[in-house]
Design a protein around this nucleic acid. Structure first.
Lengths: 367, 367
DNA sequence: CTGAAAGCGCTTACAG
DNA sequence: CTGAAAGCGCTTACAG
């Protein structure tokens, strides 16, 4: 797509330049540059001159033209943030925190929404890899759920300064991710401490490493408590069809397949006598709450329920949902730290490239 | 903050330039430029030459340096999006839709989060007005809730191409906003059609024009139905203290003052015999649902409840919440249309500068 | 149809 | 301590 010329109506024409300040101050542009955007070492400028220039610049509301600076090899101080969230508020949170953290360090973020537009074509991921090159961003945050397409390896090759949220499956990549092992332990411990003795675990798909982490945490915490997690109290949703929340753009609602939830309740609560359910995520948990209610099972009296995410909905279910907060704020903070290291000093040592964020239990009424 | 030089590790150094293509194709840079980024009229280039250049460029993975283009007066094709959402997912939705729409037209968006960082100083709004000048954005979307500080007038002066979401109270501004009059009518009509006869309206503050709009809609719809809205069925929350949802960063939860909700229920349901409540927003509605439940009032059997926003939570309350969707997707679409007009043809005629988005009723279990 | 050249607004060695 | 000048990678009249 060819770029277009600015309209004459644009304010760009009337912007104050370095040369304007120089003229007003009666010095050369070089001196003004050294004072205002003063980078490199030999910035010895007479105190008085500097002060005068600063004063004039402020008065004339000078703003440097970053395009010109960029062309001279300055960094853009811009990061690209790739997401494919389709309205998932958890990613939105992360995106926002990433921006907040970036601004703290003098950077800005450009969104790259890799789904949502047919115009760019089927492979928006590739499009953004190029676009971020054109814009010469200093780095890329990739927070695209890993089930979306896109050549992550190509991304890291074109943009060595890339930090991922959640494991992209690229060797040597810089990654920040939530520790699901600890998440499962926190949930389990909480329920054990509340006197639950038949705690069940619901996971989306035991083939996924993340679910294996949860299972390990679930078992280890039982053991640490002198108990043994039981196999008939583990529900692997993948064996009963896909079970995740999806947005219906026609109805403007979120939906969740209740059949699978009912199956889980049959198997775990009715048959195996579970008195607590550690759910795969808050959508699962919210639907579990509703189905339990429909069956006359009271929460938390008969069965306790714990979610994972601390999604918005957690405060508005009935009862409000005890859940694990994945701390996207901390994740964003760490992602920015990693990025700054990448930008200033290059890649981290191999062994420091994966950072895990410790989640936090949020207790509400469902447990 | 002085910009810093790029590290030698950066990939920028090795980027292919127009000159590289020119050399490879055995032509001048001018011709290559006309073929690849070809803007202005006289772009007559021999078919064969063009094809060869295109081929070589693709092969060498040429990406134009936008900074250089910018310096020559090209537009940046970048919009700034100002928000102060602190995690409000509705704004996040809008931000995302704005980006999606922008990309469709060949633009990108830079986030400007005007709260969330102490580093930039107390007045981040002003900071962004400057920053967006430095970056020479083609326009600014301002979606900052109007109760946040910031000189909107100064913004429109520095960035004539500014489109607001919701009325900023600046004369002549370009604005897209939700039509609350229609929202109230839709909710009221729905309840009347469902046989409710004592419908109550809860608004945050009757001094606000937006709440006046709702009240008008509420009354007009009654009238259209051959009925009369009753004054004892209008609850003005402002008279009983502040009542809005807020996020508790310590507990990682959202909270809502239940006392005011109880007061509303006392006044409207217990005393005035309301059989339906049109709430100020989904937070209100969700809390109303919970308090009604606690009092043994069943929804929708005894009382129907309708919200406003179609926030995420609406699908996860018990029962799920009937509410008004404000159509942020349509709002974003219209904002982009306005922006494109501003960029290409300058301001709209005064009378076309405020666009209202027609909301949509989403029926769930609470009515 | 194509090339040579000016210039966008900066930064930064290099002289003075 | 300050100035004159080169040059970043493009676009675009202007000649040929």
């Amino acid at each position: 797509m060819p770029r277009k010329k600015a309209q004459s109506t644009d304010k760009a024409d009337s912007r104050i330049r370095l040369a304007d300040i120089a003229k007003a101050a009666g010095v050369s542009r070089g001196v003004v540059g050294r004072v205002l955007n003063g980078g490199k070492g030999n910035s010895r400028v007479a105190e008085a001159t500097a002060k005068r220039i600063l004063e004039i610049a402020r008065h004339m509301k000078y703003q440097p033209n970053v395009a010109a600076q960029q062309l001279k090899g300055m960094r853009t101080h811009m990061f690209g943030t790739l997401v494919a969230s389709a309205g998932d508020p958890l990613r939105s949170f992360l995106v926002q925190h990433l921006d907040t953290e970036a601004v703290k360090s003098g950077y800005h973020t450009m969104i790259g929404n890799t789904i949502g537009s047919d115009t760019v074509g089927p492979n928006q991921f590739d499009y953004y890899v190029d676009e971020l090159s054109r814009r010469a961003v200093d780095g890329v945050f990739c927070a695209i759920h890993n089930w979306f397409e896109g050549d992550r390896k190509a991304l890291t090759e074109r943009h060595p300064n890339t930090v991922f949220f959640e494991d992209p499956g690229v060797r040597g990549a810089h990654v920040v991710k939530a520790n699901r092992y600890i998440a499962a332990r926190l949930a389990t411990r909480h329920l054990l401490e509340r006197g639950r003795r038949r705690i069940a675990l619901i996971v989306s798909d035991l083939k996924k490493p993340t679910c294996q982490d949860r299972l390990r945490g679930f078992r280890d915490e039982h053991e640490a408590y002198g108990k043994q997690a039981q196999d008939d109290l583990v529900f692997n949703a993948a064996e009963h069809g896909k079970a995740f929340a999806w947005h219906n753009p026609e109805l403007l609602t979120w939906q969740f397949p209740e059949e699978v939830v009912d199956l889980a309740i049959d198997e775990l609560v009715r048959d195996a006598g579970a008195d607590a359910l550690v759910c795969n995520d808050d959508f699962w948990a919210a639907t579990v709450l509703r189905r339990l209610h429909a069956r006359g099972v009271s929460v938390p009296a008969h069965v306790a329920v714990v979610g994972y995410l601390n999604h918005y909905l957690a405060d508005w279910t009935d009862p409000p949902l005890t859940t694990i907060d994945t701390r996207q704020d901390l994740a964003a903070e760490r992602m920015l730290k990693m990025m700054e290291h990448l930008v200033m000093q290059g890649p981290l040592p191999e062994e420091d490239r994966v950072v895990e964020i410790t989640p936090r239990l949020v207790v509400r009424g469902s447990s």
